[in-house]
Write a protein that binds this DNA or RNA. Structure first.
Length: 284
DNA sequence: ATAATACCCTGGCCGC
DNA sequence: TGCGGCCAGGGTATTA
């Protein structure tokens, strides 16, 4: 499941492999992969053919490729999307959705996506920051992320803390895995209410979010299966460092209590019953 | 206005 | 072995 560390790992790989290269041709193999490009595949292809990729940028879980035209390719991996560099003679992947070839006849860029929650689109004039993702908050690895603004906005909300840190308009890049990891480190249950947390408590949580994201980037991300890999098809190894996610029935790495799983926001949340007690207050 | 829910997808896995 | 049902969950549209 690509969250910020996985997307950043992909970004770094792409930056090395596609920056400065000129697109010769684009093939769209599945319409759903460009469903967010509202003007259709012919227009998508026309905007890209002959253009040179000048950089690879990221905000949260979104990627974009600025082009020499001033436009940008926007990419989101969704649940199972992959952006792979492949030699031209490599066999097509079963779930190949979009293929880019380049004028240098070097490795192709392929968008592969089993569950089709991800996709690409072109943002006209979006090289600096596409309008389509301007509503996404800066992520905590961004030098311009405003810590105190985040603390204030979070505490102004009336919701559960896990919902808040998964809200990409408040802080971007955090998904279910790293949310559970950061909450475990901060010793907070995800159902704690944002407006009942102190400023220092929120600052501590933010520091843990930053730490866990940074450590995961160093590890190349978290891989449970073949659905997340870097541009060369390799898995990350942060799964070996997880303290919460997926650890139901196993002892807490801090206190030894057996970890629990709870249904939360229609997905699984993992926590320690002792280190992260449920709040006593009833939601209203 | 904000908050919470429904929906989109596929394939691996489980129990019968 | 086959099959129905469940599960993974990011982002957005819809509902409350």
């Amino acid at each position: 499941m690509p969250e910020l560390p996985e997307v950043e790992t992909v970004r770094q790989g792409l930056a090395k492999w596609v920056t400065g290269r000129t697109i010769r041709a684009v093939e769209v193999h599945h319409p759903r992969a460009i469903r967010r490009h509202l003007t259709g595949d012919a227009h998508f292809i026309a905007l890209l053919t002959g253009r040179t990729i000048t950089d690879v940028s990221r905000r949260g879980k979104y990627l974009w490729f600025p082009l020499d035209s001033g436009d940008a390719i926007i990419g989101h991996l969704g649940m199972s999307g992959q952006l792979l560099m492949q030699p031209a003679d490599a066999e097509d992947e079963k779930h190949l959705r979009i293929r880019f070839t380049f004028t240098d006849d070097g490795p192709q860029l392929r968008f592969v996506d089993q569950r089709t929650f991800g996709g690409l689109s072109v943002s006209e004039g979006g090289a600096e920051l596409p309008d389509e993702i301007a509503h996404i908050a800066r992520d905590p690895m961004d030098p311009l992320f405003d810590d105190e603004l985040f603390v204030a906005r979070l505490r102004a909300k009336h919701t559960e803390i896990k919902r808040a840190i998964l809200d990409q308009t408040l802080i971007s890049g955090v998904g279910n895995i790293y949310a559970d990891e950061a909450l475990w480190r901060a010793q907070l249950h995800g159902a704690r209410l944002t407006d009942q947390l102190t400023k220092p408590a929120v600052r501590r949580l933010l520091a843990h979010i930053r730490d866990v994201l940074a450590e995961a980037i160093v590890a190349g991300g978290t891989s449970f299966d073949e659905l997340y890999v870097n541009v060369n098809g390799e898995s990350g190894y942060f799964d070996r460092s997880l303290n919460a996610y997926g650890r139901e029935g196993e002892p807490c790495h801090r206190c030894g209590t057996i970890m629990r799983r709870e249904q939360f926001m229609n997905r699984s949340s993992f926590s320690c019953p002792r280190c992260q007690p449920r709040p006593r207050t009833i939601r209203h």
